[in-house]
Simulated assay, not measured.
Amino acid sequence: MSNEYTDKLHAGADFPAIEAKLLDGSVKKLSTPENGLDWKMVVVYRGQHCPLCTRYLNQLDSAKDLLAQTGVDLIAVSGDSREQLESHMERLDVSFPIAYGLTLEHMEELGLYISNPESPEETDHPFAEPGLFVINNEGKLHVVDISNNPFVRPELQTLISGLGWIRNPENNYPIRGMHK
């Protein structure tokens, strides 16, 4: 694949029907909200090798209840293997689902930036750079944030506040970025 361009998901598009596995053996469709909620946030992280990802996932856990109060369910996923996620869980303190096995094809379908490992110590496979997707109750991509490096991620309190604004029917806030 050339580095000349990356296809991006468009705001308002249907979120792809991508599934990933949890450590308990279950398979989750990433875009399907659970827990009585009607929107879904999918957080793609680089993998167990990334200390910034570990910190962000742990911060997400403390924001999970505020997200739920806004009607947004949460799942995180990476291209790591089952063994890599098992190892990573030793450094994570989270109670939301974390999936593994995001394929290169899925990463491309999501329009994520993909990096190659710098060394075998980093990881053993190409991995997605951070991405965050919020899917509304119609299965449409309502919020998208992708980055080409681990240093740029949405600040959680601002994001949750913004989702509360978007979800408030009095604001009638549309999906942004739809100009063609």
Rank of each mutant, 00 (worst) to 15 (best):
T54M: 06
R55Y: 11
Y56A: 08
N58M: 08
Q59N: 11
Q59V: 00
Q59Y: 10
L60M: 02
L60S: 03
D61T: 12
S62W: 07
D65T: 05
L66A: 15
L66P: 05
L67H: 09
L67Y: 10
A68N: 00
T70S: 08
G71I: 03
V72W: 02
A76Q: 03
G79F: 03
S81A: 10
S81E: 09
S81N: 03
E83C: 06
E86I: 15
E86T: 11
S87N: 15
H88G: 07
M89N: 11
L92W: 07
D93R: 12
D93P: 00
F96N: 04
P97C: 05
I98R: 00
A99R: 05
A99I: 01
Y100I: 13
Y100V: 01
L102E: 00
L104A: 12
E105Y: 05
H106W: 10
H106G: 08
M107L: 08
G111M: 13
L112Q: 03
L112S: 02
Y113I: 03
S115Q: 00
N116V: 12
P117Y: 14
E118I: 15
E118G: 15
T123K: 14
H125M: 13
F127V: 05
L132E: 10
L132A: 09
F133R: 03
V134Q: 01
V134I: 07
N136Y: 07
N136I: 07
N136P: 03
E138G: 05
G139E: 06
G139T: 03
G139A: 05
K140S: 01
L141E: 05
V143S: 04
V143D: 01
V143A: 08
I146E: 04
N149Q: 15
N149T: 13
N149R: 13
P150T: 09
F151K: 09
V152I: 09
R153C: 01
R153T: 06
L156N: 14
L156P: 02
L156A: 12
Q157T: 12
Q157A: 15
Q157C: 10
T158D: 14
T158F: 09
L159H: 00
I160R: 05
I160M: 07
I160H: 03
S161I: 11
